[in-house]
Amino acid sequence: MQRSSLSGQRLVLIFMLGSFLFNYPLLSLFDRARTLFDAPLVFVYLFAVWAALIALMAWVVERPERPERGGN
């Protein structure tokens, strides 16, 4: 009976995705002495993933929702 439970579930998915991308072992793959766009790879990776997560969250919550049944 959760309101807008679909976007709620999508947000939980984003949480899990973020936890996965921001931690060992995936993080270690990018923790290398390499550069991308002149910046260290891990720096670019962290900020890119971060920005992507924020964009996803914004997309999920700001989309106009289909009208749902009343109640809260």
């Binding site: 709620g8 984003i14 949480f15 973020g18 921001f22 891990v42 969250m57």
Partner: peptide
Amino acid sequence: GVGFLPIYLGPTLVMALGGF
């Protein structure tokens, strides 16, 4: 180095759970 970032990544992730 990038060790300061978790202080801000954690809140980002938890905000995703904010809906609940």
